[in-house]
Design a protein around this nucleic acid. Structure first.
Lengths: 228, 228
DNA sequence: ATCTGCATAATTGTATACAATTATGCAATA
DNA sequence: TATTGCATAATTGTATACAATTATGCAGAT
């Protein structure tokens, strides 16, 4: 049974297809390719020093993630993310993170609870010092802990799917003293609600946490990173 | 621009990979394969009369949909859906369908509104007559109309992903006079709320609609279709 | 000048060959 | 009997060859 628990990250680390997949996903999300730009199998393959086979397999995954669209016998085209898409994603995430917080309240283990408290404590330190790299890292980890604690592989899968879309933007938005501290304060309140077993409150706070993150992003015009 | 609007359904219809993908997805969802059963590339290929290449590409998509797990250099294993997964899916869907109804209220076009009214009207007829096939078809279509009307490709994508998981179960649960009529009455109320521009009510009703569908399913023990 | 038709090139779709890794079976040993 | 080691088979990972489809460019017609 345990052998089925191998994580996707591990799964792809050493395969050419996995490398191609990650590279292309990063490049698309970072805006290296224009919207609707065509991706040629041979060109990508030569760039990464691999044949078309792993490239094509990576394409199928990217299509399912909604990052490219494949038209049969024609080509693979980058599907851009509009401002509206980002807004929609944050609204959907707001709901799902709320549900996640509620379920986490009901299922969190002692170990996860301790890591969460430690996370908030450490983040407070780095926020004060202005260590934005570490703060972004801890922010990501906080959410991952919650995803794991909710004890639902379906919800975890959904949220992690979204997560990739907002990773880059979030790192930028946290590079800002006010939001950095504010975000961690919100984490702390969520953590306390979970610890106290107050699922209703945890859900509400997690909802607001995502809404606030989006509002902050819009205020600073930082979603333009998606637009190029 | 228009050429990018080609639907996924069309995209895969004529490729071997698309056929393999659909076949395997159906077989997994219908329970043809046991949980944790290993899928061999050559065996699948021979069964469908194709080589390993399209089979492998289909595997990558199935993995991303969460239906199989691929362990490098070992094999592809079916990831089963537990009762808890089904429950989680319905809870998540309840939230997202609610959001969808809210957005649909704000963005539905006249044409979509008319198709929705026609759908409810027709479904009433088939529910009375006990035409379960047509009723299931109309039920699916009702939700698809709402997905399109919400005007969010991100949310639509999410909901359609879930939809496949519940399609078979839903068809069974509707094969039941009481639920069939009740479901359509709920559709009618949602439709009216959308028509009246009452987004709050539409969201609430859509939430409840999915919850009721789940409750009905549990009551009838029909999710066992997933368990095999 | 613009358009049509066709030859050619470019690109994707699939099959197959080969390499790398993992699973299996059996003999030798304790 | 149980266990180790190794040869062999089975399976996956990747590259390449070929087929099918689509794009491109140019000659000729209007």
């Amino acid at each position: 049974m345990a052998k089925f628990d191998v994580k996707q990250e591990v799964t792809d680390k050493f395969s050419l297809r996995g490398r191609v997949f990650k590279k292309l996903r990063d490049d698309i999300l970072s805006g290296k390719y224009e919207e609707h730009e065509e991706l040629k199998e041979v060109a990508i393959g030569e760039e990464l020093g691999v044949s078309r086979t792993p490239v094509r397999e990576a394409f199928r995954q990217l299509e399912l993630e909604g990052l490219i669209q494949i038209i049969p016998n024609k080509g693979a085209y980058v599907t851009g993310i509009t401002e509206k898409d980002v807004r929609d994603i944050y609204m959907i995430r707001s709901l799902l993170e709320g549900l996640c917080a509620r379920w986490a309240t009901e299922h969190i283990t002692k170990e996860q609870m301790e890591e969460m408290e430690e996370n908030v404590y450490l983040a407070k330190f780095h926020a004060d010092k202005g260590h934005w790299e570490q703060l972004a890292e801890l922010d990501n980890r906080f959410h991952d802990i919650m995803y794991e604690a909710c004890n639902s592989k379906m919800l975890e899968h959904q949220l992690k799917d979204f997560h990739q879309y907002v990773l880059r933007v979030r790192k930028k938005t946290l590079n800002n003293a006010k939001r950095g501290s504010k975000s961690n304060e919100e984490h702390e309140k969520i953590m306390e609600a979970i610890r106290d077993g107050n699922a209703e409150l945890a859900e509400k706070l997690a909802n607001e946490h995502i809404s606030n993150a989006y509002a902050n992003m819009v205020q600073n015009g930082l979603y333009e990173a998606y637009q190029k």
